[in-house]
Structures are given as structure tokens and as C-alpha cells.
Amino acid sequence: MKLYNITYFLREGIQSIFSHRLMSIAATSVICACLLLMGSFSLVAMNIDKLLEDIENKNEIVAYVEETFTEEAARAIESDILEITEIDSVEYMTKEKALENFKKEFGDESGILDGLDERNPLRDRYTVTLRNIHDTQKVADALSEVDGIAKVSARSDITDKIIQVRDVTTAICTVLILILVLVSVFIISNTVNLTMFNRREEIAIMKMIGATNGFVRIPFVIEGLLIGIAGASVALLLQWGVYEYIVASTLSAISFIPTVSFGSAIWYILIMFYGVGILVGGAGSALTLRKFLKV
């Protein structure tokens, strides 16, 4: 292809966006709306995932040390515990510290625990976090094997539930996002179809003059690509603004809910928006055009 053709196609594609202003705005809006829907859904899914992950992380196993062990002996067990490969981190806590924490949890009513300082009923303990929540039962079993561990407390029933909920939400979100992609492709291809139908006369004229299919197609594809990129860009900005607003105004008020920052999701959103935008804009117009080229 000669250089003057490339500049011609580019100019033609860009000019055509402006000379068919209404259709361009309509197509950009449709792409933008579909992407926003997809993006919003993905962000909701990400937040649910993050929330569940957070709950997972809080799900620690507590291993109590034999009461007969001195603090020194108790601290010596740590190396044994660390030999369990599934463990992410281990934290040792003396019974005094444990009691202090216990009191904190009671807050104003900690008075009922007052008499306990002299005869602390709590034990020294290790708080263990896992790399993978699926290993809870396995690690609990391994911990109880360790010499010096009297008792292991692990709520494997709760972790099983969380795993279930997370698996189900991931599946539902994936299916819903796929459906959204399909619906978007359908809506967008219809919009492109409408644009083409509006300009079938123009296409027929080009063909009658002796233009090849490629010559007719390229400006349309460039136009579609640019509209796809524009739709993705607008959607990205809107998504960003709206998301930050929602996070700042509502979610942050409920402090115990962890939120995904837009920055950490931006690559996913960026790739999805521009990928889908360019694909449906460019490929959409190339494919839809085929029908109108049969003159």
C-alpha cells in the first residue's frame, strides 16, 4: 500500500466520523455503555473477591502451648512449626499478652475480667496464617503433631463455607461477564449494521465507480477502530470517576469492608475496555460491511 493511500484512508476515516456525527455518537455511546456495564460488574466481582480473601486471611489457626512449658521452651517450638510448608507466618503470643487483647475486646466492660491477672487461665499460643485456605485441616492436623502443642483451634467448617461461597461467586461473575460481552457484541454489531445501512448508497456508489472491496472497507474499519477506542476511553474515565466516587462516599463509611483501589484494577479494566472496544469496533465494521459490499 502506498503512503498516500494510508494518509487518505486515515483522513477519510476521521472525516467520516465527523460527517456522520449522530451515528458516531450513537455508536460510541453504545460501546461506552456496554463497557461500563462490563466494567462495573467486574469491579463488583473484584470487591467481593477481595472481601472474601480478606475474610480468608483473618481465618487464622491458633495453636496452644502445653501449660508446663516455660516461655523459653515454648518459643523453641517455633522452628518445628515453621517446618510445616503450608504455613505463611507464625506469631508467638504470651498468655499475658493474650489476656490483654482479650480485655481490649471487651472494652468498657473489661472489668469482669479483673480478677484474672493473678491466675491467668489462658495459655501461651502461636497464631498461624496459611498460604492457602484450602489447607486448613491439613495444617491443623500437622500442628497437633508438634511436640509441645496441647490443642489446636481451627474452624475448618467456616473455611469450607467461605471457599464454597467464593467459588460460587467467581463462577456466577464469570458467567455474567461472558453474557454481558455477548450482549454487548450483539448490540454493537447492530449499531454498526445500522450505520452501514445508512451509508449503503455511498458504498454502492464506490463499488459502481470500480473501487475494490478493500478500498471501501479500510476507511470504515479505521472509523470503527477509532470509535471503539473513543468509546473505551470515555468508558474508562467514567468508570474511574464513578467508582472512586462510590468508594469515597459510601464504602469507606463502612470501614471494615476492604475495597479494591481503581489503581490496582486499572490494568484489567484497561485491557478489557480497549480489547473489547477495538475488537468490536474494527472487526465489527469489517464483518458487517461484507453484506453491503455485494453490489
Binding site: K2, N5, S16, H20, I205, M206, G210, A211, T212
Partner: peptide, 23 residues
């Protein structure tokens, strides 16, 4: 069958571009 969005010059020049004529 002219293209309404193009000027007279463009309508004619367009037919030449379609056959790959240099500017």
C-alpha cells in the same frame, strides 16, 4: 448518485482515488 457529504471536487477526485491514482 453523488455523495452528499463530499464537495464537487471530492466527488470526482474520489473516483480517481478508488483506482489508486497518485494525488
Amino acid at each position: 448518485r453523488l455523495i452528499d457529504k463530499k464537495t464537487v471536487y471530492e466527488n470526482v477526485a474520489f473516483a480517481m482515488r478508488a483506482v489508486g491514482a497518485p494525488p
